[in-house]
């Protein structure tokens, strides 16, 4: 049996095992083409891919495309979040609207946003706006649904108390609705950030507006396997970064909330 290791040791072991896992994956990848299991034309050596990755990192054109992708991502996410918070708050607070919009929402939400790609292309051509339509549509629902749940989750006792203390509507919004909704909103935002990135890159692949997605599609049609795999790794790192950043923001914004909730057995 293991003796209880200190927390530090356990964390070290965890990190070491994780590094071993990653290294093992890379070695395995290197071995597959080396042993001839898959033709290196289709699965290039890790060393080649990593070399390409570093080559890209010093290439200004690469950074410009990365910037283009992230600009679409940022604009789309911002617009979607603002719209979803505004509409979600109003709809969530007014029971009549909530009931009236329910079927519409349940029908529109599952529509895969990529189904709108042809429409977006017709409306805007091969431009960023076309990609934005897709990004905004997809990330809007993530935030919207969470905001509606959050707004509806206001504690009844707290609401009655606020009412009997004569809080104005604005005070109720900032002291009652906002703190209740914030955890939901942050969850929605984190999900939306990931979804927006996925669709930003997808849109570039399918529509062909400037960005990493188009670069991926170009290197595929050019048969540049090493370049393709390097870009896939880049998108993975981007996704990882977005996840980490938004998890961090979530923890920061909700630090007060965690401390309150920490005592409840949930």
């Amino acid at each position: 049996m293991r003796v209880f290791p200190t927390r530090r040791l356990r964390a070290l072991r965890r990190a070491m095992l994780g590094v071993v896992g990653l290294t093992g994956f890379l070695v395995l990848w290197q071995l597959i083409p080396t042993l001839g299991l898959i033709n290196p034309l289709y699965l290039p050596y890790v060393t080649d891919v990593l070399a390409r990755l570093f080559e890209q990192l010093v290439d200004l054109a690469f950074w410009r495309r990365l910037g283009s992708t992230m600009t679409s991502w940022a604009i789309g996410l911002t617009v979607a979040t603002l719209a979803a918070v505004a509409v979600g708050t109003v709809v969530g607070l007014v029971p009549f609207l909530r009931r009236a919009t329910h079927t519409m929402v349940e029908f529109l939400r599952p529509i895969p946003s990529v189904a709108l790609i042809p429409l977006a292309v017709l409306m805007f051509g091969i431009q960023r706006q076309a990609a934005l339509v897709i990004i905004i549509y997809a990330s809007f629902w993530q935030v919207f649904v969470q905001v509606i749940y959050g707004v509806a989750d206001v504690d009844v006792v707290a609401r009655d108390t606020a009412r009997s203390f004569g809080l104005t509507r604005r005070e109720q919004l900032s002291h009652l609705v906002l703190p209740t909704t914030l955890p939901y909103l942050m969850t929605g935002l984190r999900l939306a950030a990931a979804v927006a990135l996925i669709l930003a890159i997808t849109a570039e692949m399918v529509i062909g507006n400037l960005g990493l997605g188009r670069m991926i599609e170009l290197s595929r049609s050019a048969g540049d396997a090493a370049g393709l795999y390097a870009l896939v790794v880049v998108t993975g790192l981007l996704g990882l970064m977005v996840n980490i950043v938004f998890r961090f923001i979530e923890r920061r914004v909700l630090s007060w909330h965690q401390s309150v909730r920490g005592e409840e057995p949930l």
């Binding site: 590094v19 990653l22 692949m205 997605g213 393709l228 896939v232 790192l237």
Partner: peptide, 24 residues
């Protein structure tokens, strides 16, 4: 513990990016 960081990375790859790879 061995696979956690690897899976975290693989999950973060936007899935449509895998289409060209699988096609290849």
């Amino acid at each position: 513990e061995l696979l956690e960081p690897l899976l975290e990375f693989l999950r973060a790859i936007p899935p449509p990016v895998l289409i060209p790879v699988v096609m290849l």
